[in-house]
Design a protein around this nucleic acid. Structure first.
Lengths: 383, 383
DNA sequence: CTGAAAGCGCTTACAG
DNA sequence: CTGAAAGCGCTTACAG
């Protein structure tokens, strides 16, 4: 005899609340109350127990479609992003979001809008029709955005972005801290002529990382020579980086990203210098493919994409359910690890490798949350 | 006065079929029939017209939740993948799937399972409870899989994979053709000692590309020297590639992927050879980050991730709705372009660049569909 | 050609 | 403490 729970798995008829009620000899009202935890002093304990027993026996799972129609709460979350899934990292935002969603009993309806506002509105409307309880609005790089009007009156959390109007909760990397951590690491390695190879575009990340770089130098009492700061495109087509490199002869270089770190490797090679021995380099992104090509392996700061997605969902659900979600459970998430102090950064104090060690999540109370990043130390820093 | 259609966008009450019925002075039965195209000879034309007019006026959109409860068809597609969103490419599968889904009035419920069979079953069950009409089962690299039992009896299409049991439709890149196209391109560039730098893992892609390489050499009447074929890991830790390179002095190299192409660049540099002048190199993946680092820019074959997602959804919907979906509309999809013959590959006959030109989709009649790839010609092939 | 009614699987105010 | 009933917004067999 095939138990109904197995039958239900095969695309056959699903077990309904009515089935449970019949088996337990009660009405569906009672089953609903028991299974939704509304029994307190309202249902006789042994009846409640029997209902739960039968529900389990039959493998009953509530039909979210029916529930949604009745309650207007679907446990569906809309995941709207501009261009996720075209960059190598951003997929991890979604991974983190999915893990958190699963833990909390939600599921993700995902759409890309490619920055087309009209399409965006259509897609958001479509997701709303499916009864989504709230939205994640994820951007592919850190920037200020104005949330589309179609999200008015709906719970929403911004990921890798900040709300221009300052009313929506958001989470983004602590860019300034990235600059500070990288620079301090280079200082600790003994560097004194530290160069910053920035981006030639006006990004939040560019401004923040540069500011962090300056802060670190100042705190250390190391003079900040303006000529050590350049802003170049990924290929350094203007040759500005190369000229500055030759003029300044840095002993340490902090790069806006891994691609720009490649420029340093090239320049070093041309001048007979060896990265990791004659000078130290730190990048940002910790791109696996670049790591696999550069030699010696590049030390790089990893952006907390997984964590942003994870935090974003937890924050969103706390908004939707108007309750506190107990914090610190990121340790259960695959491939992640919780640090020991809120917002801390697990920069290797002893130059060990930190692959797989992730930054701690900010508190869910934060509205404009910043999240720390991890420096993955490899071979590009002079020991 | 705020029109109801606007009200509905603000998280207020949605316009229902009852509203339309009232305005049009008919019953909801009639509205349903008109709006679902079941009027043929059953509804007076001017009544139908008025219903449509009012529906449009009020901005009515059917409530998919209610419809789903009644009909068990939700227009939701489950997108189950092993590790998508941790690789740079695979996100594009989802993009293609989303675009096709939108065009056909479906929406994607996405989950990652990280290759955990238990989690996979749970997630599939969860998606089923939301009433999904069918599933995409997407893998992060081309391989044979056995579809999980929880998908039994449910429409499903495999992406970047092939069904071990041979019953599920699937789509994957035409690996053999990749090998043939790359090798033929090198032959056309005048190469005669063409090396294949393969992967040291037993992948479908490895076998297929190698077979294609051999086919092309044979067709061209060029002897296939076994010593020209190596299988190495990404770093060539055994030094096997380097030894073969030195022994054989190839004038052309076809690489399993871009990362392995990097080995060629290194070896060439060590021997004072210049890629694109002294020897030609072709990779696979066309990874933007590697392209940005290697110099001269690497010519590479791009895997059709977007197209696989797009085709997969169309195939799935044709299964679900048991109808033919008219083909050839990939030209409407963003960033893609339709070639001129089915399954053809837009390899540059005249060495022009083909960025943004994508391969044509296979017919939806195919069950084990293979899809052609595009060679993006840059600077690494001797002119 | 059209409408009243039943029903999809839930939740919850109401009555007892 | 418990159940019958109404209702969420649709679709469709049934009756006319």
């Amino acid at each position: 005899m095939v138990p109904p729970s197995v039958r239900s798995r095969r695309g056959g008829r699903m077990v309904t609340m009515k089935d449970v009620a019949d088996r337990a000899g009660v009405s569906t009202s009672t089953v609903s109350r028991v299974l939704n935890g509304k029994e307190r002093g309202r249902i006789k304990p042994d009846i409640a127990k029997e209902v739960r027993r039968q529900a389990k026996l039959l493998g009953y799972k509530p039909n979210p479609v029916a529930r949604s129609l009745r309650t207007h709460s679907s446990r569906i979350l809309g995941f709207v992003s501009d261009e996720i899934s075209t960059t190598p990292f951003s997929g991890r935002i979604m991974l983190g979001a999915q893990d958190a969603a699963r833990e909390l009993g939600y599921i993700l309806l995902a759409v890309n809008t490619g920055n087309d506002p009209e399409l965006e509105e259509q897609e958001i409307d479509a997701i709303k029709r499916y009864g989504a309880d709230g939205f994640l609005y994820a951007m592919m790089y850190n920037r200020p955005v104005t949330v589309p009007r179609s999200l008015d009156g709906v719970p929403a959390v911004l990921i890798d972005a900040r709300d221009e109007d300052g009313v929506r909760p958001s989470i983004s990397p602590d860019e300034r801290r990235i600059g500070r951590d990288a620079t301090e690491r280079l200082l600790r390695a003994g560097c004194r002529r530290i160069m910053y190879v920035g981006a030639d575009v006006p990004l939040v990340a560019q401004r923040g990382r540069l500011a962090g770089y300056r802060e670190a130098l100042e705190s250390a009492g190391v003079g900040a020579d303006g000529r050590l700061v350049v802003a170049v495109d990924e290929q350094d087509t203007t040759g500005e980086f190369l000229r500055a490199f030759e003029a300044m002869r840095p002993d340490g270089v902090f790069c806006f990203n891994d691609i720009r770190a490649n420029l340093v490797y090239r320049a070093a090679a041309e001048h007979g210098l060896t990265v990791g021995r004659d000078l130290s380099v730190i990048g940002v992104d910790n791109q696996p493919f670049i790591a696999g090509i550069l030699s010696p392996a590049l030390s790089s700061i990893e952006l907390p994409h997984y964590e942003m997605g994870y935090w974003g969902v937890r924050k969103l659900v706390s908004l939707i359910e108007d309750r506190d979600i107990d914090e610190g459970s990121l340790e259960h998430a695959p491939g992640t690890h919780t640090g020991d102090s809120a917002g801390s950064v697990a920069v290797g104090a002893n130059d060990t490798q930190h692959v797989g060690v992730h930054a701690q999540l900010p508190s869910l109370k934060d509205e404009q949350a910043l999240i720390g990043c991890v420096l993955v130390d490899k071979k590009s820093i002079v020991a």
